[in-house]
Amino acid sequence: MKKSKILAGTIFLAIIGLITIAADHIDAPASRGTSADISDFYAFQGENTNNLVFVANVQGLLSPTATSTATFDENVLVEFNIDTNNDNVEDLIIQAIPRDGKMYFFGPFPASSTDLNSTVNEMATKNEVAISKYGLGAVISNSNQMKFFAGPRDDPFFFDFAQYSAIIGGTASGFNNPGADTFAGSNVLSIVVEVPKSSIGGSGSINAWIETKVKQ
């Protein structure tokens, strides 16, 4: 992959508890409506408590009809950035990029650059998983003590956007209970990687964020 630049917003979080989430849902100005848009980033402890799971969701608000034809963009590289010493600079990177119906993963590997340009590190540990089809069972790959998934999923993010807008506009004082899920019935394309804690800084807390970069 040639030099590339970030088109979507970067989503950042610190992993301290068992589950954390960050979301923007197509509000990054330079990437709105593109295949590089990030909707969510989740990180949580795996069922195997020695592992952490990272989830990058892209192309949010897909209707069921749109989901049936949606595909990962082969020109978009997704990077999971991991900071192990709390200086908010990536120490380790996991890259994911689709090719011919499969999602390929490289890493985790030590970061050699922290600028906006990236190349696929083909010298890093390589894994792959077939991209799951909409409406069919999930395809999960197990390799090198890691697990991998890529494909469409129901959008798990719950948010009452209309009520939020009313609160911001001063016509409401708080959220309703229950609220209305703006994202109900919509889907995303998910990239999931589960890694041993021992390979990304042991059992201590880490910072993590994702970036999408488009081939130029």
Rank of each mutant, 00 (worst) to 15 (best):
G174L: 09
F175Q: 06
V195Y: 04
A184Y: 11
F158P: 00
G179E: 11
G174T: 13
F183W: 12
F183Y: 14
S186V: 08
D160S: 07
E194C: 10
S165E: 15
Q163M: 13
T182S: 13
F158V: 11
F158D: 07
F159P: 03
F175W: 11
F159C: 09
G170I: 07
G185S: 09
Y164V: 02
F175C: 07
S173I: 01
L189T: 01
S165G: 10
S190L: 04
D181Y: 02
A166I: 00
V193R: 00
D154C: 04
F159M: 13
G185I: 09
F161S: 11
A162D: 12
I168S: 08
F183C: 05
N177W: 07
N176F: 07
P178N: 08
N176I: 00
F157G: 00
Q163C: 08
Y164M: 14
V192H: 05
D160G: 06
V195Q: 06
G179M: 06
I191H: 06
D154A: 14
G169C: 04
P156F: 05
F157C: 02
N176E: 14
F158L: 07
F183T: 01
D155L: 00
N176W: 03
G185P: 10
V192F: 13
V192Y: 14
V192M: 15
I168P: 03
N176S: 12
F157A: 05
Q163F: 06
A180F: 12
G170H: 04
S173N: 11
V192D: 14
I191A: 07
F158E: 11
A172K: 09
D155N: 13
P178G: 10
G174M: 14
Y164C: 10
N176V: 04
V193D: 05
S165L: 15
A180P: 03
T182I: 05
Q163A: 11
A172S: 14
F159Q: 12
I167E: 05
T171H: 00
A184P: 00
S186N: 12
F183G: 00
G179A: 09
F157M: 12
N187H: 15
V193Y: 00
V188A: 03
N187R: 02
N177T: 15
V192I: 15
T182H: 08
P156A: 01
N187M: 04
P178R: 01
A166H: 03
S173A: 10
A162C: 07
D160E: 11
G170D: 10
S186E: 13
F175E: 05
T171M: 02
P178E: 12
A180S: 13
A172P: 05
D181A: 06
A172Q: 09
N187L: 03
G170C: 07
D160V: 06
I168K: 10
F183I: 02
S186F: 15
A180C: 08
A162W: 09
P156M: 01
G174K: 11
S173T: 13
S173D: 13
A166K: 12
N176Q: 12
P196Y: 06
A172L: 07
V193T: 15
P196M: 06
G185R: 01
P178Y: 10
A162Y: 09
F161L: 14
V195A: 11
G170N: 05
